[in-house]
């Protein structure tokens, strides 16, 4: 071969190497990506289900703290929160409520959220007497176990109440659930408040128009 041809061939080779880089060594390492595939298993599913008859370490139902994890105290639905609710908890609860609950329950808690407007069964308003008087443990129970009226013999329902609440335990940690319940309590207060509940020095603020930039949607 003529040396000229060698130069041309090798420069084409370099060119090809630059353009057609193979990226299968460090780019695709032999590890399973989260929720990725793994041909080692029968169904190629990298994320494995727990083996039958086993319980994950640290699972909620292995925890001993009945109040925090199951909302129960002395075998009954808890009547108090497992920890003191601070302003931070309320803000966190507000954030989580808007993300996880408001699609159905609406930001005001009246149960006319967007999903309900699109055809989902309307949930109870949080502002009915039964729920105003319900214990924190009741809300917690609905959150983790879901709700079918027939499953809660201790609670009186109207005959036409065919409400359904899916269990949402997998979406929220125990602390987040309690924060949401605390925020529901705040919502209930807010919809059932009189002028007497507003501290004297802040009453003047109620009539002020909203300032520019503080829209009601954010917090």
């Amino acid at each position: 071969m003529r040396p000229g041809a060698i130069v041309i061939a090798s420069s084409l080779l370099v060119c090809g190497a630059i353009i057609g880089c193979e990226r299968d060594d460090m780019w695709e390492q032999p590890k399973t990506a989260v929720l990725g595939t793994n041909e080692f298993f029968d169904n190629d599913q990298g994320a494995r289900m727990p083996v039958k008859g086993t319980v994950a370490r640290g699972a909620d139902n292995l925890q001993e703290d009945d109040l925090l994890y199951r909302g129960m105290e002395n075998g009954k639905l808890a009547e108090r929160f497992p920890f003191e609710i601070t302003e931070n908890d309320l803000n966190a609860g507000h954030d989580k409520y808007d993300a996880f609950c408001s699609p159905c329950h609406a930001k005001s808690g009246d149960g006319m959220g967007m999903i309900v407007q699109r055809g989902y069964k309307q949930p109870f308003s949080f502002h009915i007497d039964r729920l105003r008087n319900a214990t924190p443990g009741y809300f917690y129970s609905v959150l983790i176990r879901g709700l079918r009226p027939t499953q809660l013999p201790g609670v009186k329902f109207e005959p036409d109440d065919d409400k359904v609440h899916p269990a949402v335990a997998h979406k929220l940690s125990p602390v987040e659930r309690w924060q949401i319940i605390a925020y529901i309590r705040a919502l209930q207060l807010s919809q059932n408040a009189t002028i007497e509940d507003v501290p004297m020095e802040q009453r003047g603020e109620l009539d002020k128009p909203k300032t520019e930039g503080s829209n009601g949607e954010s917090h």
């Binding site: 989260v34 929720l35 699609p103 999903i115 699109r118 055809g119 989902y120 069964k121 899916p166 949402v168």
Partner: peptide
């Protein structure tokens, strides 16, 4: 966590059991 997460089908079913 590091991964944003994809919803389990259960999450779709929260609404799509009725809608």
């Amino acid at each position: 966590g590091p991964f944003a997460g994809l919803p389990p089908t259960e999450t779709c079913y929260t609404c799509h059991s009725q809608i």
